[in-house]
């Protein structure tokens, strides 16, 4: 009998850059945008604690073209992250059984995305209403 000499093929180091893994890589990278946006908000909190002058500087930065461009990019990445996050949601929860049948993943994603969109819109409206 021949002895077994299995050959191991290493996984290419750039697997994440190739299909079908690109969508996953984009989803995970867009998570970095969420972290950067958290950093922007946190910087605001720090400048608020440091006093009115510091706060005015922060607001000045927010109004600058650089900040506006950054926010457009961040918003696009965060929206992409939200959409793909809810696409992943059905994979992370137990099967929803209603009337003895499993609820399809697309339905769960659709409802959750709608709910997130509606609450985000409500929040924007409340903030706009408060600041006027």
């Amino acid at each position: 009998m021949n002895e077994s000499r299995p050959y191991r093929r290493p996984q290419p180091g750039n697997w994440w850059a190739k299909p079908p893994y690109r969508a996953y890589t984009a989803r995970e990278l867009s998570g970095v945008a969420v972290a950067i946006y958290g950093g922007v908000l946190f910087a605001g909190l720090v400048s608020l604690a440091r006093g009115p002058e510091n706060w005015a500087g922060y607001v000045g930065f927010l109004k600058s073209p650089t900040s506006l461009a950054l926010h457009v990019l961040l918003l696009a990445a965060v929206v992409y992250h939200v959409i793909t996050w809810f696409q992943t949601l059905p994979k992370t929860m137990p099967k929803l059984i209603v009337n003895g049948e499993a609820v399809p993943a697309k339905k769960i994603t659709g409802l959750a995305t709608l709910l997130a969109g509606a609450t985000s819109l409500a929040l924007v409206l409340v903030v706009l209403g408060v600041t006027r």
Binding site: T88, P90, K91, T92, M93, P94, K95
Partner: peptide, 12 residues
Amino acid sequence: VDPANAVNQNKT
């Protein structure tokens, strides 16, 4: 079979 669902609900 949706094995990704099996793995991820077991993280929870």
